[in-house]
């Protein structure tokens, strides 16, 4: 019961870096259930490093990341695995396993972690592929389809187990505007129907305003987050020229400059 009241993800005083090199310091934010949370910032500001820390691939150098109140990096492998099972991740290029067909790609998590029969797994796979608009593509290999389709298939795999939290790494990069729009709609749809919490790392302004209801803005120069909140309100109310510049594609340079 307590779990539903807590934020899904809490990040407290987190520093990120590689060896001695600091990428980001002093990050503090929390993501509530049902949020579509945007991590934005210019290229090279550490968005992907932050994502790696959030999905459990690389720990922060300092601070803690809590999921439902549990400190992820303090737990042993087994408990970390249990927490990670509730994640779905859509990697930038789809990251499909190239030696498996799309159907097998989506089926693998189900075979590992569900109690369904072979026939039921096939049905769930068909459903997931249909949801991302790839009905009938189950027997294709990743090399036989286009980049945009690979990305959608990656999403089908990410949502195979109906995860509580879905992470998107640059979901619209490499997609045409219509497909990018379709993906945005799908993100909203997933949140509404499955009640998933969604974290999106992106710098596509159209997506940021279309889907996000909360966000943080990472700045590479000061190496920390300089703004947070609903992106639309940030655009309206922020007084920070760096944020305004980013959110208006540099057309409005903001009051400060």
């Amino acid at each position: 019961m307590e779990e539903s009241l807590r934020p899904v993800i809490e990040v407290r005083n987190v520093d990120l870096g590689y060896d001695d090199y600091v990428v980001m310091r002093n990050l503090n934010f929390s993501i509530q259930k049902g949020d579509i949370f945007i991590v934005m910032g210019g290229s090279g500001c550490g968005k992907t490093t932050l994502l790696k820390a959030l999905i459990g691939l690389k720990g922060p150098t300092k601070g803690e990341v809590l999921y439902y109140g549990k400190n992820f990096w303090d737990k042993d492998d087994k408990e970390q695995q249990d927490i990670m099972q509730r994640f779905g991740v859509l990697y930038q290029g789809g990251a499909l396993w190239s030696s498996l067909t799309l159907g097998e790609n989506v089926a693998l998590p189900l075979q590992l972690y569900s109690k369904l029969s072979v026939k039921q797994i096939r049905q769930v796979v068909e459903l997931k592929l249909a949801l991302v608009g790839l009905a009938g593509y189950a027997d294709f290999y990743p090399s036989e389809i286009s980049g945009g389709m690979r990305k959608r298939a990656g999403l089908a795999r990410a949502i195979a187990l109906d995860p509580d939290i879905i992470f998107f790494d640059e979901p619209s990069s490499g997609l045409d505007p219509l497909n990018a729009r379709m993906l945005d709609d799908l993100i909203l749809e997933l949140r509404d129907t499955l009640g998933a919490t969604i974290v999106v790392v992106t710098h596509e302004l159209a997506s940021i305003f279309a889907v996000g209801n909360n966000s943080i803005f990472l700045d590479p120069e000061s190496k920390t987050m300089i703004a947070s909140g609903n992106p639309k309100e940030l655009l309206k109310n922020s007084s920070d020229p760096r944020v305004i510049k980013f959110l208006t594609r540099g057309e409005k340079l903001g009051a400060g400059k």
Binding site: L127, A130, L131, G133, A135, G136, Y137, A138, D139, F140, E189, D192, T193, L194, G195
Partner: peptide, 22 residues
Amino acid sequence: EGVQKLLTLSLKMREKVVVHQE
């Protein structure tokens, strides 16, 4: 409502099935 929505969505998507040329 959520179930109905997903059901409609996937039934709609199913109409444009592509068959693998095997």
